[in-house]
């Protein structure tokens, strides 16, 4: 039996699968991409562009397929899946990297103490009922005793003492505490930098209030008993501008005054046209014109003029 022919044909077929180029093709299997960095063959390009493009594309695709076939596969219900290596080309991301979640106060503490996180089961064993019950939620273990039809009352307890209510209150308090801590963690996560100015603001506020209260007595603080370590109140020092100033500064100041006046006149206008608190203009017009409106009022006022002319 002569198999040399079969072997030769197989070899020829194998050859067709192998792509040989001057500069080897760059293959990025992660993105299923092949880059052919060989210069364009001008002659064959000009001869038949489409055929040339198709031929280069075929070579590239062939090389890519032979690379893919060499990669390891895993079986799946849909057929073998080829495991792709991570891509070598680096493309820019569409969104920034996610920021790591800041640790909660408990997490910080647990880390410092080396406490491992333990996962609690959703169900716990109830010895009395001899079955698994929820740790919380419907029929939860944490509500144990709240629905008891009979409970022991210690001697000397108050008349309205309700043990079930007591248990419920303490559970609610625990929930509220947890919620508060969650909020605190959130606030801390949102930025410790924004917390400091808030504190400063509060300090100033307190100082201002204190200063106001100190001069809010009948003697304006004159005959008040001084506390130990209390500082003398500092009043506002008057400041005077120098008589001689640069022209620019003077100009700026006068412009500021003008703009202030302008604003004031605008505001006054607004108040006049709109709801003035002393006089309700709309109501006044309505009563003066007998419900006919301001237009009728002006017409009426101009009428006598006409009559005068006639006479």
């Amino acid at each position: 039996m002569d198999v040399s022919e079969i072997l030769a044909s197989h070899e020829a077929r194998q050859k067709l699968n192998v792509v040989e180029k001057e500069i080897p093709l760059v293959i990025d299997a992660g993105y299923l991409t092949v880059t052919d960095l060989n210069p364009v063959d001008k002659e064959s390009y000009e001869e038949d562009t489409e055929a040339y493009l198709l031929a280069t594309a075929r070579d590239g695709v062939q090389a890519l397929f032979s690379t893919l076939s060499a990669l390891p596969t895993v079986p799946s219900p849909y057929g073998p899946l080829t495991q792709l290596p991570p891509p070598t080309t680096e493309l820019p991301r569409a969104k920034p990297l996610p920021k790591p979640k800041p640790p909660t106060k408990w997490e910080q503490f647990a880390k410092a103490k080396g406490i491992q996180k333990k996962r609690k089961d959703r169900k716990v064993w109830d010895e009395e009922k001899q079955e698994w019950v929820n740790r919380w939620g419907w029929g939860g273990k944490n509500k144990e005793g709240e629905g008891a039809w009979l409970s022991e009352v210690k001697q000397g307890a108050e008349v309205d003492h309700d043990p079930a209510q007591e248990l419920r209150n303490s559970r609610k308090a625990r929930v509220a505490k947890n919620e508060r801590q969650q909020l605190q963690n959130l606030a801390r996560a949102q930025g410790s930098s924004s917390q400091a100015p808030e504190r400063e603001e509060r300090k100033k506020d307190i100082d201002r209030t204190l200063a106001t209260t100190r001069i809010s007595t009948a003697s304006m603080g004159r005959f008040d008993r001084q506390l130990e370590g209390e500082k003398k109140l500092k009043g506002v020092k008057r400041k005077f501008e120098p008589n001689e100033r640069s022209i620019e500064e003077e100009k700026k100041n006068s412009l500021a005054i003008i703009s202030k006046l302008e604003n004031e006149s605008k505001r006054a206008k607004k108040e006049k046209s709109g709801g003035d608190e002393v006089l309700n203009v709309r109501k006044a017009i309505r009563s003066a014109s007998g419900g006919k409106g301001s237009a009728a009022l002006t017409r009426n006022s101009s009428k006598p003029k006409g009559k005068k002319g006639k006479r």
Binding site: L32, T56, A57, G79, P80, L81
Partner: peptide
């Protein structure tokens, strides 16, 4: 090219987008 894949079913690759330059 889309996102990088971990694995792919090779017989399901159906088409190629080829970008070539003129001389």
């Amino acid at each position: 090219g889309g996102p990088a894949l971990e694995s792919i079913h090779v017989p399901g690759l159906e088409h190629v987008v080829s970008v070539s330059l003129a001389p």
